[in-house]
């Protein structure tokens, strides 16, 4: 598995996978739905899979001495690694912003502030995308577009729901919004819930993808 992940990084990761990590800096933009940062992360997953298809990666990899069912798991874990790095970077940049700007400027009027509760939302968004996109993609790796449209649409819908919640539900509007130091236990709890959902959905994506890919003809 380690070799497969190294191969993914060396041959398959699209430059946007790295470039979009810098989008963590978007948390400095005032009044912006920061969950959108993670939509770009989903876009880089799409680009990686698209590039892999154009490069004949699946046939190359399956001819290597590896179990066929490990091929999709290696891809998902690699992409998941980038997602986790983006989560950490976004959290770190958000914390820096919290320390650097006045509290009233930190408050986000377009969605949640760049705090750890935002990372909970982001983790739910990414986990959902992983499940929908990879499960669809590994049904037929020749078709990258349809799974991305399905996954991307769901991501946008989820982001929309989180924005609506921010404006309609006091828990999101007040408790989860603002600086990390305010209502910290609730924010941490929401982060924990988000990460758990992410882990469960991504694990499900691995299992479904491996099962489907094993039956796929290359």
């Amino acid at each position: 598995m380690r070799q497969l992940i190294k191969k993914e990084i060396a041959l398959c990761v699209h430059p946007t996978g790295y470039i979009f990590l810098s989008f963590a800096l978007l948390t400095f933009v005032p009044n912006y739905p920061y969950e959108m940062i993670f939509f770009f992360s989903c876009l880089s997953v799409f680009f990686c899979c698209l590039t892999a298809r154009e490069n004949g990666d699946v046939a190359f990899t399956c001819a290597l001495p590896v179990k066929k069912r490990l091929v999709p798991i290696a891809r998902i874990l690699t992409m998941s690694g980038f997602q986790c790095v983006l989560l950490v970077l976004t959290g770190a940049v958000g914390a820096i912003k919290g320390a650097a700007v006045p509290a009233e400027m930190y408050l986000n009027y377009a969605g949640l502030s760049a705090n750890i509760a935002l990372l909970g939302n982001a983790a739910i968004v990414l986990g959902t995308f992983n499940l929908v996109f990879f499960a669809g993609y590994y049904k037929n790796p020749e078709k990258v577009g349809i799974p991305f449209v399905a996954g991307g649409a769901l991501v946008v819908l989820l982001i929309g729901i989180f924005i609506v919640l921010r404006w309609t539900v006091p828990f999101f509007m007040q408790t989860l919004n603002g600086l990390n130091s305010e209502n910290a236990p609730f924010k941490a709890l929401w982060l924990l819930i988000g990460l758990t959902v992410y882990a469960v959905l991504t694990a499900a994506a691995c299992k479904i993808s491996a099962n489907r890919f094993e039956k796929t003809d290359i």
Binding site: K6, K7, A10, L11, N55, G56, D57, A59, F60
Partner: peptide, 14 residues
Amino acid sequence: RFYPMKRLDAIRKA
């Protein structure tokens, strides 16, 4: 036919 944009040494290493 694989990885036309990659250098051969990158492919060989992987």
